Simulated scan of single mutants.
Amino acid sequence: MDFAQYWQVTDAVSKTLFLILITLSLISWVVGISRIIYAKQKVDVVADELSDAISQEMSGLSGLEFAQKKTATEQFLLKHIANHRFELEKGLPILGTTAAIAPFIGLFGTVWGIFHALHAIGKSGQAGLAQVAAPVGEALIMTGLGLGVAIPAVIFFNIITRLNKKALYLANDTAHHILATVR
């Protein structure tokens, strides 16, 4: 069965599910690739960005006592690390949600296809290959498509989460080093 034939035998529900899964797939690929690139860039520059930002801030703290300077530096570092975390985690909910719901959308399409197969059997009174081939094929396509959308989303999510952890580790390590050198 080619795609044109598949598209002709499907109904509005199957077409809608198919389009939803294709849209989720495209979105997860775009988000996944762009966030991996962003996270890799952040891993390379997060320590320098934090050091540069604190060096600019330190000039305004020169008249403070040691305890006040250390507290102000710590608050400034915490704020910047939180900003980095926020920026790094953008897009992860899209990937996580796609990974979680795509198999269920595919499963719903599978159930819908099996329903069509049973309906065809009921109409004809026979359970021959001609009555069930198209609906069962439709069901299998939806199952595969659901998994085909979810698996890359999970992989992207895990890669990005790992890169984010590395970037935040470097940011925290830099912050501890900066706090240790406050005078």
Rank of each mutant, 00 (worst) to 15 (best):
M1P: 13
D2R: 06
F3N: 09
Q5P: 07
Q5M: 12
Q5W: 04
Y6E: 04
Y6R: 08
Y6D: 01
Y6T: 11
W7A: 12
Q8K: 15
Q8V: 07
V9I: 13
V9G: 13
D11P: 11
D11E: 06
A12T: 15
L17E: 08
I20W: 10
I20D: 03
I20M: 13
I22K: 09
I22L: 15
L24T: 09
S25D: 13
L26F: 13
S28E: 08
W29T: 09
V30M: 10
V30H: 03
G32Y: 03
I33C: 06
S34R: 10
R35S: 08
A39E: 07
K40F: 05
Q41V: 07
Q41F: 08
V46K: 00
V46Q: 00
E49M: 08
L50C: 05
S51T: 07
D52C: 04
D52T: 03
A53M: 04
A53D: 11
A53T: 06
S55W: 11
E57G: 07
S59Y: 08
G60D: 14
S62C: 07
S62P: 12
G63L: 12
L64R: 08
L64H: 04
E65F: 03
E65N: 11
A67E: 15
Q68V: 00
K70G: 01
T71L: 09
E74C: 01
Q75V: 01
Q75T: 08
Q75L: 08
Q75N: 15
F76T: 03
L78R: 14
I81T: 05
A82E: 13
H84P: 01
H84I: 01
F86S: 15
F86E: 14
L88M: 13
E89W: 00
E89N: 14
G91K: 12
P93L: 11
P93Y: 07
L95V: 08
T97V: 15
T98G: 09
A99P: 15
A100F: 05
I101Q: 07
P103D: 10
P103C: 09
F104W: 07
I105H: 09
I105Y: 09
G106C: 05
L107K: 07
F108N: 09
G109T: 02
G109F: 01
W112K: 12
G113N: 06
G113C: 08
I114P: 03
F115G: 09
H116Y: 02
A117W: 00
A117H: 03
A117V: 00
L118C: 02
L118D: 01
H119A: 12
A120D: 02
S124C: 08
G125M: 02
G125E: 03
G125Q: 06
G128V: 02
Q131R: 00
V132D: 00
A134F: 00
P135A: 01
G137K: 03
E138C: 05
A139I: 02
L140D: 14
I141K: 04
T143V: 02
G146E: 02
G146C: 14
L147F: 09
G148M: 01
P152G: 04
P152N: 06
A153L: 04
V154P: 12
I155N: 08
T161A: 12
R162Q: 14
K165P: 00
K166V: 03
K166E: 11
K166N: 14
A167I: 01
A167L: 02
L168I: 10
Y169R: 14
L170V: 06
L170Y: 06
T174M: 13
H176Y: 07
H176N: 13
H176D: 15
H177Y: 10
I178Y: 00
I178T: 05
I178E: 02
L179H: 06
L179N: 12
V182G: 03
